[in-house]
Structures are given as C-alpha cells and as structure tokens.
Design a protein around this nucleic acid. Structure first.
Lengths: 345, 345
DNA sequence: ACCACTGTTGTTAGCGCTAACATGACCGCC
DNA sequence: GGCGGTCATGTTAGCGCTAACAACAGTGGT
C-alpha cells in the first residue's frame, strides 16, 4: 500500500545483511552496490537495488563513518546570522555542501571571542567533521585561527582580512574605492565614513580602501566614525552630523559601512530637515533586500554573499582532495541608486 | 610548550586504549571516566583525566554513535534564513541545542516543496540524527509532515498553523488582533491588509485574526492583498493604493504582513505624495532591527523568534525523554511607534 | 590443453567505542 | 571466620559497516 514499506515492520533496525539475505548475496555485495563500486554484475546490482527499495534500507552513517574515518560533514562556525550577509553566506555554503554530498553542522557563536571559536572548532573535531569553515569578520578571531591547527582542514571565509592560509575573501577595499570614486566623480570634495566596529576586519579594510582612494585622488582626508552595524548607531552619528551641517560645515558625502547604518543615517538627516541626496549624499554597503526601498533608494555596494559561501566549500573540497589551494576572492559591485547626487553648489 | 600537546605527535589517531595505557587502567575505565559513570575511584578518575588532558584525547563520535545508536545531533530543516525571523529562530534553536549537548545539522530548503522537505528529513534520518525539527510556515508542508513518519521524533516549529503533533507556534491571530484593535481604537473605520503568500500559514492566520477582530468590532471588512514578504510587493500595492486614495477612496489604515512589505508600502505612499501616518496609518509585523528607523518609525508586532527556537528544542528533548508533550505557544507583542495615528478628519 | 588475467563474489578482520558480565577486593555482620 | 553485599576494575562481545584478501569462475592467447 504505502510506497515506503513493501516489506513488513518499517521502523526497526534494518541492516545490510537483511538486504543481503533478501537479495541472496553477501552483505559485502550490498555494500558494493550501495557505494557504487564498478565490479558488480548488472543483474546482481539490480536485484540488490530492488531489495534495498523493498525493504526501505538506509545505510548507517555512524558505522560508515567509523570505518572510513569520514563523516561527510562540514562544520560551520559563524556569527550574526540574523544579519543579511552572514545568513546569505550560510545559504551558499549549505547548498554547495549538499551538492557535494556533505551535510552542514552549524555552530553560531556569540561575539567573536577567540576562545569561543576555538571551542566551537573543538566540538566539531570531536564530532569527526571532515573540515571546518569559520566565517567571521573579526580581526582577532582570524588571527587566532592560525594558532588553532585542528586535525582537519580549516578554511576561513571572511570579509576582508589577511590571506593567511586557505581563505575566501570579498575584496572590501575595492568596494570602498568604488564608492569614493563615484562620490568624487559627482563633484564632492571629500567623503566621510561611518565604519563598523573597529575590531572588524571588514570595516578596517573598507576604511583602508576609502582612505587610499581619497589620497589617490588628492582629496582631503574625510572624517571617520565607528558604529556597530545597526541602524541606531547610524542614527546617532546622523543626528550629530546634521547639526554640524546646519552650522555650516561643508559635509556633503557620507559613506556608511553597511546599509543598516546608512538607513539610520538618512532617517536622522531627514529628521533634522536635511534632504538626501540634495544636502548630502549617502552610500551604504551590502545591498540588503530593502535597500531599493529606503527613502531615497540607497546607492550601495553589492557583495555576493552566497558566492562567498560556495567558494568556501570549493576550497574545502580542494583541501580534502589534497590539492593546494590559493586564496580566493570575490569582487563587489557598485549599485548607483538615488541617495547620491552632485553637491549643492 | 604548547598547551595542547604535552605528549608527542599531536594529530594522529588517538584512541581510548592509548589513554588507558598511559593511566595504567583498562580502556573501559577510561570510558567510564569519559562518560561520568559513578563507580570509579576518585584517584583513578583523576589519573585518567590527567592522561586525557596530557594526550589531548577526544572520544570518537562515530564509534560512540554506532554503539549507542545516538549521534547527539538534531537536524533542522528550515528555509528563508536570509530573513530576520527564520534566522533568529535558528539562533535560538542552535543555542538551546548546544546547551543540551546536541549539535545542530542544518538543511536549508528552497521553496516549500513537500518533496524537498521529505528529502531533507530523509537525509537526516540517514545521518542518524536523534530528532528532526522542521521550521516552516508553509501550509502544505506542515500538512505533509504528518504523513512523513520518520523513525525519529519530528517536531514542527511554525508560525501559526494547526497543532497536530508536537508543535511550537507563535499565535499569529493574536498578533493580528492586536493590530486591528489598536487601529480601530485610534478611530479608523476599518483596516486593510497586505498579507504574505497565500500558502503561508503564517499569513493565513494573520488574515484570520485580522478578519475576526474586524468582525468582532462590527467594522466593515477590509480589503485583502497578497505579497511575497519582500519590499517590492509592498511597493507595488502601495502605489496602487495611493492612486485610489487620491481618487477619494477612504483608505486610512494598512496592516502589512511583515515589516519589509510595510517598508515598501510606505515608500510608495510617500512617493505618491501621501504622508504616514497623516494620510494613512501603516503597521508591520516582526519588528526587524531596522523598524524603529524606517520613516516614520514603524508600529509593528514583535515576535520572539529566538524563544520559538528554544521551545522547539525543549519539545525535542521532551520527546526524546519519552515524555508526552503538548503543543506550545509563544505570544506576540504590539509595539506602537510613529507610523500610526488617528485618521485625518 | 594450459596459463595468465580479468571480473565477480564471498570471507574475514577490525574501525573505537559501550554494555553486560566476570572478577576480586573489601566491608560489616551474625 | 565465613557469607552476602557493595564497590572498583577488567574481560568479552558486538554495534554496522568497509577494506583487504581469497576463491572461483570465465576468457583468450599460445
């Protein structure tokens, strides 16, 4: 009747020898069929496959892992998954892993404590994962990764940062440069920057790109603030900046470290009676799904987070295959929308 | 030198007998210490523990899983984790699982295809997870869950929906009721609703709550549209609605199925020259981190997603302990901000 | 007809661990 | 002093699977 269980009792320990008995072969032949070994007679293979289906047999992963030494699982250590970028990266990772026949075990750590990450990696090692991917933007965390040296491949998927060891990176500097050039080309004298937390490599790299692009263009250095990625920090800075603009300071271009902060920034600016981009141009970073619907639609830098995840898995597979693998990079893309314009003369 | 490896070679297969040899006991005694069995002499225990630390021994999870039949892993089938709610729920789940000594294996399915979910559950069963948690808002998906009958406990964590089997639910109707009452109390004649996708139970329940609350209050039924959760669908509806308002239709209160759609809605309204809440009040659902910084700050319903996840794990643990467990519910909370006001007379 | 070879199957051992039982040591008590 | 009882430990078996080897076809070349 049911498609699941042609045989008898469904939910009882069903092992390889049961299938073997039914197909009239040895358990080893069943193993060969299950694992797709070449040297099995087509007829036998068919018979075994039928027995497997009829019985609804599923190989025991633990037993297999024990004898092969591989659990076909990748451990992911991540954080801030309630933010768009990290979540999207995780999706990319999970899908690539699944396609490659691996399952994904996830540890979501809070804060970026080095110890916390080490602990999570350690748990994964205990779980016999085949590899660990650490997704972080934290400077210290990445630095500490080198010292970890777990018995399995460890690859870092990060938002900017040094390229020590196997690493996939979004080239943050390039994104920041894109922003500065765009704003300068519009006629702004300089660009000020509301960065993310100081210990975030991601922020730091963007700061570097921003500063360098400004210097290259011969523009005077802009002012730098630090936020915490959330809209509230953008709001605070925006309120302060608005006051200064109304007091006559020539601040016309603001580059926020992510879209959320840009949002807070713009709201504060509006509340203080300033218009975007009329009085001041604002640029974000990330291209979250809501960005085109901010008021005004936000000019921002798109990062392909999912691609980052996919490349992470590629790197893992390469390491697992014993290949040497070079650090990999993903390029960001500037999306010009309506929050930027030339400065009011 | 290193804190990790006092002994010799670090990254080689280190097994229980190695520890046993070093401590001068049998491997079984080591097993007893590792698993915290009571009947071990304190002195022996200490000796074994020291040996474990010196060697940096970690028990092999696969071997343990093979013999105990439990992998101490929970499988999570989820979707849309790039949205705030599902991501937050996952965080709650992961942390509760970790605290309980379980690790979390994640499958992120696309769309809500019943087959896709069944497949994911199946993969988890093959991985010998101890239990599966399915987090979905899809109607068909949940309906199909009952037919799945995997050999391990399966609990649903959902956003509204029937309470068949072990389930944790956010009471969506209650949230919608809160919204309608608030708007009606402000003096609006009726409330219109931009719901999520039709097959989403979450949406459906909110629709029910909205409709019931309206009926209870004797208000005329409002109009109903369906969006896809993203700002763009709110924007489209907003544009159409704005035109009708300007044509004289008395639409004054809009309830969006989530904050993102509310955002799109408000942007469209503004673009068409209408003010929120001056011309029309808008309410969202979820309380995403950016909501207080929308323009205007959004009145919305907070759902405690993380709590949902935590309860999900509780339910799993109860099932695993063989306890009977009743469906559990989490109550939502209305946050009144600045996107709602009385109608313009 | 024989041999070397390839292809198919079965047999055996063992992955690292825990559960169950077996063994002693030691205790107090009649 | 011997006897049931508890505790601390060791011994044995086996979880379900795969790898290595053994065994036996069949095949074609000489």
């Amino acid at each position: 009747m049911s498609t699941e269980t042609h045989g008898s009792a469904p939910a009882r320990p069903l092992v390889m020898s049961d299938v073997a008995a039914r197909a009239g072969v040895s358990h080893q032949t069943v193993s060969r069929v299950v694992n797709g070994h070449p040297n099995v007679a087509p007829l036998t293979r068919a018979r075994v496959q039928r027995a497997i289906e009829e019985l609804g047999y599923r190989p025991n992963a633990a037993a297999r892992a024990l004898v092969t030494g591989s659990s076909r699982t990748i451990g992911l250590v991540t954080m801030n998954v309630n933010q768009y970028g990290p979540a999207q990266t995780m999706i990319g990772l999970e899908q690539a892993a699944r396609v490659a026949g691996y399952s994904l075990s996830v540890a979501i750590v809070e804060g970026a404590g080095v110890g916390t990450i080490a602990e999570a990696v350690d748990r994964f090692v205990g779980q016999s994962v085949d590899a660990v991917v650490v997704h972080t933007a934290d400077l210290e965390a990445v630095a500490a990764l080198g010292a970890l040296d777990p018995p399995v491949p460890l690859v870092a998927v990060q938002m900017g940062g040094e390229e020590l060891g196997p690493t996939v990176t979004v080239v943050q500097e390039a994104g920041a440069r894109l922003v500065v050039r765009h704003l300068l080309a519009l006629g702004h004298t300089t660009v000020h920057h509301l960065s993310g937390p100081e210990h975030s490599m991601e922020s730091r790299r963007r700061v570097e790109g921003w500063r360098d692009a400004l210097a290259e263009a011969g523009a005077p250095p802009g002012e730098l603030w630090h936020g915490d990625w959330w809209p509230s920090s953008g709001y605070e800075v925006g309120t302060a900046v608005a006051a200064r603009i109304r007091a006559g300071e020539p601040i016309t271009a603001l580059f926020a470290g992510n879209d959320q902060m840009a949002l807070g920034l713009m709201v504060a600016l509006h509340e203080q009676g300033l218009t975007v981009p009329g009085d001041v141009s604002v640029v974000g970073f990330d291209d979250v799904p809501g960005a085109p619907y901010f008021s005004p639609p936000l000019t921002t830098v798109r990062q392909d987070f999912a691609e980052l995840g996919r490349r992470g898995v590629q790197l893992v597979l390469a390491r697992l295959a014993g290949e040497d693998c070079e650090p990999d990079q993903v390029q960001p893309l500037l999306l010009v929308r309506r929050s930027t314009a030339g400065p009011r003369r």
